[in-house]
């Protein structure tokens, strides 16, 4: 299975501030009553957006200035909580192609990489600086470069970090593990036969 080599993500940015934005926030459980991931995009941050509206405010994801943005910025421990792949799926289907945060919860991180959606880490200072730049010029195009490990906006570069294995997986087009795993099936059977609780199967 040849997958796209993801070396760069370009697009406009949107900043959703907050730490510990959990998976219930990213997609409330009541929208997970589905048997496909289709159509989940509209439910991304559903309650937060509805709240903002009710209070006469506009959530960044509904702010027309940021419509079509594909790079999402946020705080620390992004995606904590449940293992639901519905969360990264909803963001991806909303149009997000990369997430930049201070840190990520582990399962969310893995789920996102498997979709080919890079999750990269930047310092909170830099995230705030970029957020200001986006705010003052929402049309600015950002370039996330996974090979150079930097984010460029206007004539500025910001350093970023990403786990080596995830970076490699993305840039070599091996972000979905299934092909590699399938190649090892003979070894899987051999290994399983050594385990009493599996050998009986």
């Amino acid at each position: 299975m040849a997958l796209e080599k993801i070396t760069q993500v370009g697009g406009r940015g949107v900043y959703v501030p907050g730490d510990d934005l959990d998976t219930d926030r990213i997609i409330p459980a009541r929208f997970m009553k589905c048997i496909t991931f289709d159509g989940l995009g509209e439910f991304a941050f559903y309650d937060a957006r509805a709240f903002a509206k009710a209070e006469g405010q506009t959530h960044p994801l509904d702010d027309q200035r940021f419509t079509g943005a594909s790079i999402l910025f946020s705080g620390s421990n992004f995606g904590c909580g449940s293992s639901r792949e519905h969360a990264p799926q909803a963001l991806y289907r909303f149009g997000i192609r990369a997430i930049i945060a201070e840190s990520f919860a582990e399962i969310f991180f893995g789920n996102s990489i498997t979709l080919g959606m890079p999750c990269v880490v930047m310092s909170s200072e830099d995230i705030r600086s970029v957020a200001k730049l986006i705010e003052s010029d929402p049309a600015a195009i950002l370039t996330l470069d996974l090979t150079e490990k930097k984010l460029s906006i206007a004539d500025m570069d910001f350093p970023l970090t990403i786990a080596v294995h995830a970076q490699e997986a993305l840039v070599t087009g091996k972000w979905d593990a299934i092909a590699d795993l399938l190649e090892g099936l003979d070894d899987v059977r051999t290994r399983a036969a050594t385990l009493p609780y599996m050998a009986a199967s």
Binding site: S82, S83, I107, N111, I178
Partner: peptide, 9 residues
């Protein structure tokens, strides 16, 4: 705990 793609795996 795993995501759905890993359930597939």
């Amino acid at each position: 705990g795993i995501g759905t793609s890993q359930v597939r795996d």
